[in-house]
Computed example of a mutant assay.
Amino acid sequence: MRSFRMLLLLSLAALLLAACKPRVSEEQKAQALKAFATVEQVFQHPRCSNCHIPGDQPLQFDSQTPHMMNVVRGPEGKGAVGLPCASCHGEANPPAGYSAHAPPGAPHWALPPPDQKMAWIGVPAAELCSMIQDRKRNGDRDMAAMFKHVSEDKLVLWGWDPGGNRVPVPVPHAQFVAAFKTWMDAGAPCPG
């Protein structure tokens, strides 16, 4: 009898949660999927994908060449012991007078840690969408934290001001943030 009551209470709770969940119209879903195409374009750009890699060697340049000097992710994503990313990558880009290929910089320069690589080079849109939402693979971030990460994190913002002769992310940051929010606010639907 007790388990029946518990089952009934759980069923009622599930129905209440479903009833309270905001409904998304087909138009909103279509707008969200269109917005996600913008999010995908940004995530797949070399400024982002050069560090979101399946292996352990970051990539460089728009050609996505393996990083010189055998640089690797390391145990925390901050480079190998004895050769941390911060050895070459400072807290900011070097002044304009430096070489066009001088190492760029931004606060907390690093790759994602090895247990949460967030590797999306060549990943289909539906899988990328799922990965962004999966707290086990995205640094334990809910969607609000993901939004804050893409809209405020200084290392993410570096993609729009990469210094040297690097090509910035082609989608303006404000447009990207608006697209992410549109997608997120509609329940973050994934492409079919």
Rank of each mutant, 00 (worst) to 15 (best):
Q60H: 13
K34H: 12
A110V: 05
L16C: 03
S99F: 14
P84L: 07
C20D: 02
A145S: 15
A119Y: 14
H101C: 05
A86D: 09
F4M: 10
P162L: 03
H108K: 11
P107Q: 04
P113Y: 00
K29C: 11
M184C: 01
Q175I: 06
D153N: 08
L10M: 15
H149W: 02
S63M: 08
L128S: 04
E26T: 15
R166I: 11
Q41N: 09
K78N: 03
Q133M: 13
W120C: 11
R5C: 09
A174F: 08
R135I: 12
W160Q: 09
P170C: 12
N70S: 11
E127S: 07
S3D: 15
G77K: 02
K29N: 07
Q28W: 00
G90N: 11
K21S: 14
M69I: 05
Q57N: 08
P168M: 03
P114K: 04
P114V: 12
D62T: 13
R23L: 13
P168F: 03
K148V: 15
F4K: 12
L7Y: 03
W158V: 05
G55I: 05
H89N: 14
P103N: 05
Q28G: 10
V171R: 09
W183I: 12
A110P: 05
G79F: 00
S11L: 10
D115R: 07
L33W: 09
P103G: 04
